[in-house]
Computed example of a mutant assay.
Amino acid sequence: MKKITILGSTGSIGTQALSVIRDNPARFVAVGMTCGRNIELFRQQLAEFRPRYAACLRKEDCERLAWEFPGVAFFYGEEGIDHVATEDCDVLLNSLMGMRGLVPTYKAIRAGHDIALANKETLVAGGSVVMKAVREEGVQMLPVDSEHSAIFQCLMGNQGKKIRRILLTASGGPFRGWSRKQLESVTPEMALKHPNWSMGQKITIDSATMMNKGLEMIEARWLFDVDIDDIQVLVHPQSVMHSGVEFCDSSILAQLGVPDMRVPIEVALAYPDRLETGYESLDFFGKAASLTFQKPDMDVFRCMGLAIEASREGGSYPVVMNAANEILVQAFLDKRIGFTQIAEGIRQMMESHDKVEDPDLETIVAIDRETREKTERILL
Rank of each mutant, 00 (worst) to 15 (best):
R221L: 14
V258D: 02
R221M: 15
A270I: 04
V240Q: 05
I218M: 10
V263K: 02
S251Q: 13
E266C: 00
Y271W: 15
Q238S: 09
H242P: 06
S243Y: 06
V235I: 14
Y279M: 10
V245L: 00
P272R: 02
D229T: 12
C248S: 14
F247L: 07
S239H: 11
W222I: 09
G244M: 07
F224S: 00
D225N: 08
A268Q: 01
R221P: 11
I265S: 04
G278E: 15
P272K: 02
W222T: 09
Q232M: 15
L269S: 01
L223G: 10
G257D: 07
L256H: 06
V240M: 04
A268E: 10
V226P: 09
M241W: 10
Y279L: 14
L275C: 08
S251V: 05
D229E: 12
G257N: 09
M261T: 01
L223Y: 06
R274N: 12
Q255D: 13
P237C: 04
I231H: 01
A220H: 03
R262W: 07
G278V: 14
E246D: 05
G244Q: 10
P264T: 11
R221V: 12
V263F: 03
Y271M: 12
L256S: 00
P264E: 07
I228A: 05
V235P: 04
A254G: 09
G244V: 05
M261Y: 05
S250K: 15
S239C: 09
L275H: 10
D229C: 08
E246A: 05
D230W: 14
P272E: 03
D273R: 11
A220G: 10
Q255N: 11
L223C: 08
V245K: 03
D225V: 05
H236F: 07
Q232C: 12
E246W: 10
I265G: 01
D230I: 08
H242Y: 07
S251R: 14
A270Y: 01
V267K: 03
S251C: 08
L223D: 03
V226I: 14
D230M: 14
S250G: 06
L234P: 00
Q238R: 13
D230Y: 12
I252Q: 03
T277I: 04
D227F: 07
E276V: 15
F224C: 05
L253C: 07
Q232N: 07
V263N: 00
A254F: 04
L256P: 06
Q232W: 12
S251Y: 13
E266P: 02
G278A: 14
V245A: 08
D249R: 05
A268T: 06
P259F: 07
H242V: 08
L256I: 00
D249N: 15
Y271G: 04
D230P: 12
R274Q: 12
V267L: 09
A220Y: 10
L234Y: 12
R262S: 07
V258H: 03
L253V: 12
P272Y: 08
H242S: 03
L269D: 04
S243I: 00
H242R: 12
E219Y: 10
C248R: 15
S243N: 05
V233Q: 01
F224V: 03
Q255G: 04
M241E: 10
E266W: 01
R274I: 13
L269Y: 05
D273P: 11
V235T: 06
P259K: 02
E276C: 15
A254I: 01
F247D: 11
D273W: 12
D249Q: 11
C248I: 14
A254N: 02
D227T: 09
R262M: 00
